[in-house]
Write a protein that binds this DNA or RNA. Structure first.
Lengths: 199, 199
DNA sequence: CAGTTAAGTAAGTGATCAGTTATTATCTCG
DNA sequence: CGAGATAATAACTGATCACTTACTTAACTG
């Protein structure tokens, strides 16, 4: 029975995944290359067969970090904008809660890299939300006097902090609901309750 | 003329401040004790006269991190809630932009510490906003069906991400305006514009 | 203004860790 | 099946860095 296996094709991704997980939880500098190796069931030397140095390994980890499955397109039916926004918020909240923050955590644990690294997930989320808001404005289902970019940034910011502080998944779910109610109807006391009116 | 000065009372804070600034910008682990010493115009040994080890220095830096000047109390006049909320958001935005994120950056650069460290600024901001929302609910100026805690978290989240990605101060100012408009009136197209109706 | 206290310095020191090297074990293919 | 070729290992190495130690110098005090 073999002591170890040659798996030249599978290794790189496994190593990157191990690095991502460890760095997200301990920070880049507190993560030893040997730790990554151990988690991947391998020794240090192996890592250096696939990556020039630790830096390149981390870059790969960030590059291969998970992206959410693609968004549903916004329906053309009148009145579809706000429900679509809610749905999008809920999906992003779930994704961030589950795993989406890993690359962000890694980037924040090493500001030098964070500066040169792309904002990945956050940028994706903001793009999607901004798109929905803009289409809503075009169809007169969202007030036109707020800049879509800022709105998207605010909403995504809320999602991100929520996931960061995030306790359990249930709490995140509620937050997403509250956030979409907040966004669609604001804080003013008039108007229907957020529970009664639509997903 | 003296080569150096004895300043036993001023040193500890200076050292903590230097550590905070450097760690916020480079991350805790990328910041060398010697760097902190140099920025404080001192040599390494001096640091160890005041702090047992690097860890204690960083803890002190976090503990001494700046807090905003105290909030104005919310007026009792009817209709004062929403303007107070706007004002609060704008103040926190400005503070976070200027310096308030330093401790957060430090904490995020070292997740081990971040876990045991208090959330400081963020908690403060959330407490204040939540208080305003609750008093608004009590006076029927804010809809009662949204949990104040979640609302506060969402708003603060937006502020924080904004400051994190934050370009210049002007942008932050706009964001705070947009956020408060979003919060008070929501995205629905009816109702007055955010520019025309009250600070 | 000595003489003592303590703040500061400068030059180590040992441990840790990224990256290497020499070697061994597993595949691949004629 | 056996002979490269190469994936993986185990043991090293040199640099870096947190922390120390021995000494220097500024300030206080009777």
């Amino acid at each position: 029975m073999a002591k170890w296996k040659r798996r030249a094709d599978a290794r790189p991704d496994e190593l990157a995944a191990a690095a991502l997980a460890l760095c997200a939880e301990r920070g880049v500098h507190a993560t030893r290359v040997a730790d990554v190796a151990e988690r991947a069931g391998v020794t240090v030397g192996t890592i250096y067969r696939y990556y020039r140095d630790k830096d390149e390994l981390i870059d790969a980890a960030l590059a291969h970090s998970p992206r959410p499955e693609r968004k549903l397109p916004v329906s053309d039916r009148p009145g579809a904008t706000l429900p679509a926004l809610s749905e999008s918020l809920r999906r992003w909240a779930a994704f961030l809660q589950a795993q989406g923050l890993q690359p962000l955590r890694v980037a924040m644990s090493d500001p030098q890299r964070g500066a040169r690294a792309p904002r990945g997930v956050i940028a994706d989320a903001m793009r999607e939300i901004e798109g929905i808001v803009q289409s809503g404005i075009a169809r007169n289902e969202i007030r036109a006097d707020l800049p879509a970019t800022e709105v998207a940034r605010a909403l995504v910011g809320a999602l991100v902090l929520d996931a960061m502080l995030g306790e359990d998944a249930a709490a995140t779910d509620i937050s997403a609901d509250v956030l979409s109610a907040l966004a669609t109807r604001g804080l003013r006391p008039d108007g229907p309750s957020w529970r009664s009116a639509g997903t």
